[in-house]
Design a protein around this nucleic acid. Structure first.
Lengths: 145, 145
DNA sequence: CTCGGTGCAAATGCTTTGCAATGTC
DNA sequence: GACATTGCAAAGCATTTGCACCGAG
């Protein structure tokens, strides 16, 4: 809930990695935090633009990568040809049901999935950093028709 | 194990969808069935080419989509910017551990994951068609170093 | 003052498309 | 014969990059 905490975390991450603190990076961060739900790089770029904040696409992409690395945003790749992002702040880890008919994306949380994933990692001596599960199919709405 | 069964299935799928039975489509299918492990569209194209089978890239992409639709291949999208495929024939459903350091992809099978996925779908009245779980992190080999 | 970051436009690389020729049904 | 499919090359599209300028440290 505390946006300043996220900013502080990002600042720390930048300093640790010897990245510079630039206004553009924080403009992108602000926009990300305002965005509810999924968005792609271009949507974010356009939103910044419409708020009269001049940041180039290149910087948006660059900053989104940084934000992903430090865990502020999650990057997803569903069926189509571009990446979608989402702030992870204030949200528990969740996965996605993707409707192949209407394109809707439904989020769900399931503790058991996490548990099983941890098991698998242990078995394989694999150190997990992030995970994503997508189930493709037909959603409840479309099934009614 | 029976490759002819897959071919028959593909033929049936094509007929049902009013797609034509062309030699090119079956050349692509053959190449797919020969390929062990993951491959991308271009690798498949090059393999066909090196076997003196003339099929254009466009046809490879088109056919891979058809093969995915009828469940002969699975299409994955890992971190990078292109799609990877894999025949599903003769292989139980499995998921992937992706090493962020060496890029290795480790497959694993876990029945519990399937079960939990089925649960989630039931809860959401969602009719699943396919699912993919990727866990990103550091593999055993890289951890030793 | 140094060197990383930025903006712009141009490049990249996977994938799709337009169109004429081909071959299935 | 009709029309889906093919091949080719060219277009599309998200993303990255090269380079000159700018500004954080």
């Amino acid at each position: 809930m505390d946006i300043d905490l996220v900013k502080a975390g990002f600042t720390k991450y930048l300093k640790q990695g010897n990245y510079r603190i630039t206004p553009e990076r924080f403009h992108v961060l602000d926009a990300v935090l305002c965005f509810d739900g999924h968005f792609d790089a271009d949507e974010l770029y356009l939103r910044l633009k419409s708020n009269d904040i001049r940041v180039s696409r290149a910087t948006v992409y660059n900053t989104l990568d940084l934000l992903q690395e430090c865990g502020v945003v999650a990057k997803y790749r569903f069926g189509d040809n571009h990446s979608r992002y989402e702030k992870t702040f204030g949200k528990p880890h969740h996965d996605h049901l993707i409707c192949l008919q209407c394109g809707d994306i439904i989020e769900f949380v399931n503790r058991k999935i996490e548990t099983v994933q941890e098991e698998v990692c242990l078995e394989n001596n694999f150190k997990p950093q992030s995970a994503s599960l997508q189930i493709f199919g037909v959603c409840a709405k479309c099934r009614q028709q």
